[in-house]
Nucleic acid binder design. Sequence first.
DNA 1: TACCTCTTTCCTGTTT
DNA 2: AAAACAGGAAAGAGGT
Length: 253
Amino acid sequence: MLDSVTHSTFLPNTSFCDPLMSWTDLFSNEEYYPTFEHQTACDSYWTSVHPEYWTKRHVWEWLQFCCDQYKLDANCISFCHFNISGLQLCSMTQEEFIEAAGICGEYLYFILQNIRSQGYSFFNDAEETKTTIKDYADSSCLKTSGIKSQDCHSRTSLQSSHLWEFVRDLLLSPEENCGILEWEDREQGIFRVVKSEALAKMWGQRKKNDRMTYEKLSRALRYYYKTGILERVDRRLVYKFGKNAHGWQEDKL
DNA sequence: TACCTCTTTCCTGTTT
DNA sequence: AAAACAGGAAAGAGGT
């Protein structure tokens, strides 16, 4: 299964590998940006490319998919270990996966090997795939409950499905942003919604809801004023992160 | 099952 | 006039 990989394992340079690094950190760190050359938000999704040819972004998309689909706890994943290309990912041994993601690493390794051997037909039947994963878990004496809270390295969850986190992560990911959102005042956390309907469409895609509109999305955003996640800015399409929002500050990334 | 949070949906009225 | 804002109300989804 691994024969096709001819490159030796080369994990990222651990000299700048912060064990507390989150996914948001990873993609907002200027040191990492140059590695995304030629990539745009319009590049193909990971499922349309063979794992050996995945870009770093594809690897990220795959990780996010695994966390969402199999309810893996992203807190267990040391993201800096996955700031790598598909070729590098395919070169990782099971032990290295475990080192990078604890018990989740074992699942990720299993899923990756299945994609490599079976292609994306592995995902054709979601229920069947889940059963396969479950069988694997059972045979490995792994329990779902055991995936949580062990070997946790990161402080940000990839599973975050809250709207404000989605907005925050979009602001921090220029590759995905496509000019939909932009900072008005980075230090104060003030941002502008540039393409309101595009934002709604993207949020709708995330929630698998093709009826999402900016009007409905903005209603949800207004609820955040109550909880201090957002603060009111008296300008159209302009919002500000409140005291209860976290993870957006430049100096705290 | 009950309860909770976070939306989603719909609405009326207001502001830009 | 159109788009966006402001919130109330109720329903839905997912988690515990």
